[in-house]
Structure formats: C-alpha cells, structure tokens
Write a protein that binds this DNA or RNA. Structure first.
Lengths: 276, 276
DNA sequence: CGCGACTTTGAGTCTCATCAAGTTCGGTGG
DNA sequence: CCACCGAACTTGATGAGACTCAAAGTCGCG
C-alpha cells in the first residue's frame, strides 16, 4: 500500500488533515509501490537522464551534485528522510544534476503518470506541490544569501542549524546530537569553501564551545549562540500554505488531529544506516 | 482582452503551439485585466505581505530584494519584460522578499483565483507553471554555482551573458548593445561583491576588449570570449518541457518546429544547475 | 599491522573588502 | 548660461579572510 508514500510526504504539513480525505480517496488508483534499498554512494539519477518519476526518501540522506568541467563539484541540495526528490523535473522531464545517496537508505518511486492522476482529480494536489517547491526554493535562496553575504564561520554554523532544524522536524528525538554524514570535503562543496578551511572553521566553533564533531557525529553544545552567529531564522524552512486564494477546498474546520492519527508510525528503523 | 497576458507568458515557449488552443479557449473566463504603469523605484510588493496574484511584467525591469538586518541587501532575481513574478508564492500566499521596479514599466496582475480556474480546467497549465518555476529555480541554482565557484570577473561576465541571452529571447533586436539599468552597487548586491570591485572588474573586462559600459548602456564587444571566460552555457535558461509523462495533452504530432520541441536534445557535458 | 580515507596544522599567497580621496556627469536653481 | 550639488563611478592603499600546497596525525577496517 503506498499509503506510506503519502504519509511521508504529507506528514510535515499542517495542512495534512486538510487534504487527507482527498488523498485517501485517490490512493487506490495508484499501483502498488515498493521500497527500494540503496547503499551509500548509489546513484539515484544522473544528469541528462530523462525523469519520469518522483522519489521519496524514506530513510537515509542523499544529495544532488553538480560537476564542473574542471572536475570540482558542488553539492546543491541535501535531502533528508521524508523529502521528495525530483519535483522540479516534473515538467521538464530531464535531470539537470546527479543525485547520490550519502548513506544507506530506502527510497520509493512515484511515477509522474500516477501524479497526473492526482493533478487531474485534485487541483489541490498541484497546489500542494507548489508549496513544497516553494519551500525548496526558499532553501536555495537562503543558502545563496548565506553564501555570498557571510563568513565561512557563519556559513558552516548556518548549515548546521539548518540540518538540525530539518531533522527535528522529522523526529524530535534528534536533540542536540546527530549524525552528519558528510565529509569535510562534502561540506566544503556544499558551502563553497575549501576542505581545509572547513576543518579550521570547525576548530574555531569547537574552541568557542558551540559544536563538536567526531566521526560524523555532531554535537551542538550551544544552539542558541550558534543560531545567533549564523543569523539563522528558521522561518524559511516552513512549508507555507494558505494565505493565497488558491485553495479549492473549503478551509478546514481546523480539527486538531493528533500527530499519530495520520497513520504515521514513528518510523525509527530507517534512521540512517551509516557507512561512509 | 487579456490575450496579451498569455501571449507574454507563452511567447517564450516552444510549446506555445501545444497549449495555444487550450489557453485560447480559456481566455474568456478571465476578467478583463488592465495594465498598470509603474515608475522606477516603485514597490511591487513587500516582504510579509500576503500574495494573492501573479504579476506579469509587460515592459521594464524589476527585481526582488532581500534586506539583511545589518542594512545591506541582496538582489535575488532580476525580472525582464515577459517574466512572471510571484509564481512561488502561489501556494504560500506570502511574500518573502521585496520587489521593486528598476525602470519605468507596465505590469498587469493575474489573481490567483483566476489561475485556479486554469488549473481546474486544464491540468496542463499547472504543468506549464511547473516548467516556468523549474527554469527560475535553475537560474537561482546557476547563480549560486557561479557565485561560489568563480572569480569576480567570471561572475560579472556570467551575469552579463545571462542578461544578454534573456533579452535576446524576448527580442532578437537586442544585438550586442543594451541598457543594463543597474548601478554598480546593484550589480554588487546581485553578485555578492563590493561596488568598488565591480568597477574594477568592469575596467578589467573593458581592458580586455570584452565589454564596455557607459551610463547604463552596455556594449558587448566580444561575446564569444565573454562567454568563454564566464563558462556560460545558456541551456539552463531554456524552459524545458516534455520529457516527462505529465502531459495530458496528446503529444503534438511532432511537427518539427524547433530543435527543442521534443524536449531536449543531447544534453551532454551539461553545465546547468538544477534544482531538485 | 598497515593501508587508505579523512582530518589537522603550518606557511605562503592572492583575491577581494574596506576606507578614503578624487572624478564625471546630469540636473537644478540662481 | 553658469555654478553647484549629489549620485555614480574611479583609483589607490591597506589588510583580512580564505585558498593552495605540503606534511603530519588519526582512525576504521581488512
């Protein structure tokens, strides 16, 4: 049952309950889908390939990478469990980047053709996808702002705050310690700095008692101060919905549904299998 | 008749012919819309405002701006005639940036509620909007790549190439000379460098016989070489369509209209950024 | 136990920001 | 018509942040 797919997509929305009925009603139209296991380093898609499905990352980390002609590379996006990958290629049908697993994990596919059914039957779903894309774009914009306007220390701090916040959104059990499955070279390629300087910057943050990193394990010692120096404002991470007039659906009677009522079972298992 | 609105949106698509019939059929559903004159410096929207319409820029330049707490600012996007502004706030209903006219110009509004009609009657239109957003995001990603990986000279060169290419797309009469209505401070805020360094960089480009700038008038002297040093690959500017299976419309009988009608051609060593 | 991947540390260098002073140019008011 | 003003731009000097190169240290794993 691909119930599970939708759960992982919609879980993170306040509006979950709003669309639930519609989504539920549509579920039976979809083909059975299966979870696929991927190992760290596995390729999810390659630049130039044609894109005919979305991927939902059920567990593990992944990223999209752009390779420069000179051999250097840039990590464009980091994907965490629950993220929907490939939204932007819905229309173009073409991958512009490579996507790679950073850890072991599970993904499942959602063919565009299935999506189409959703679109057709429920314009709201299209709107929902706009919302997700919107948030993605906000992240991209935020990173751009961060990268051009701020020092290396701020950039790294900001990135850590972002990961931390996103993880908490998925599972509030990630308190102030989590696995950050990126090498310093990966971080460098994400943040547009040299690996050497990432190392130095980590030392600096550690010296100030803000974070600590050992073997991909990251400990945040002083979240408040970290956010402060990063000028981190988590609002850009929120998926926004509703101010607009786009909703066909009558605004929900705002029934307070408990998190669990969504049928999502606190999925622990998948938690990042490391390697690397 | 807001025929004019759709023309300005769809003009730039190879797929124009594909959707034309549908769009035309729908036009009558829309309320009469009017062009609004805006002066340089006029505000189109402000951060925090609620968003309930799209704007189509009929003529003139505009930009979106993000203001930092410290008073500095960043120009996030530059809008040229024919661009659709505010797509990403369709779902969120909230403006995250400010938008300002850079020159005098005309805009017209398209309320989200009208859009909804389109969505409803024609899922293809939603897909089309995805395509536009996709391209926007590609631009954002490309700028990010450019800004973190390249020197000031390359960044400026790249930006000039981008503007030039976009202008040509609108009107091929822009040959190698056009008005670039941005002060050096604006350029600095766009490219993440200091105004002083923009000046120096222009001098450098001029010294190498690549471009010339005087009173906002920009002359490209050696487009080939400029693109070369900028590592500019215009493909990321193309609005892509079709590879996917999202199209409800029967694929057009493959009338050989333009190279890209099929969606994509041989995307090799691609540059291009992406967006998830 | 040793190899390889990752990280740390040091030294030298370069790009670009900042500060500051001077220049050009269009517009405005006398 | 001229003088002045301010915005935009140019040019020079100085310094900080970050890159590169290079070498040594750590750790997991076979």
């Amino acid at each position: 049952m691909n119930r599970v797919v939708f759960d992982s997509i919609f879980k993170r929305f306040d509006i979950y309950h709003t669309l639930e009925k519609e989504v539920t009603a549509l579920l039976d139209h979809f083909p059975e889908d299966q979870l696929i296991h991927r190992k760290a380093g596995d390729c999810l898609w390659q630049e130039g390939e044609s894109a005919n499905s979305l991927l939902v990352l059920r567990s593990g980390w992944a990223c999209s990478i752009y390779y420069h002609k000179d051999g250097s590379r840039q990590l464009l996006e980091i994907y965490l469990p629950g993220d929907v990958l490939g939204l932007c290629q819905i229309a173009s049908g073409n991958r512009r980047t490579n996507a790679v697993m950073l850890t072991d994990g599970w993904v499942c596919e959602l063919p565009h053709s299935s999506l189409l059914k959703l679109f057709d039957d429920s314009p709201n779903t299209a709107a929902l996808l706009f919302a997700i894309i919107n948030q993605r774009q906000a992240m991209l914009a935020e990173r751009r702002i961060t990268m051009t306007h701020r020092s290396a220390k701020q950039r790294l701090a900001h990135f850590i705050c972002e990961c931390h916040t996103r993880l908490l959104e998925i599972d509030e059990n990630y308190r102030d310690e989590f696995l950050l499955p990126l090498t310093q070279q990966d971080l460098a390629d994400t943040l547009g700095m040299s690996a050497v300087h990432v190392s130095r910057t980590f030392s600096q943050l550690a010296a100030e008692g803000l974070v600590q990193r050992h073997l991909f394990q990251l400990i945040i010692l002083d979240a408040t101060k970290l956010r402060e120096i990063a000028a981190f404002d988590e609002r850009y991470l929120k998926i926004l919905w509703g101010g607009g007039n786009l909703s066909l659906i009558e605004q929900p009677p705002s029934i307070p549904i408990s998190p669990a009522a969504s049928g999502f079972s606190e999925d622990q298992d998948g938690r990042i299998a490391e390697k690397q």
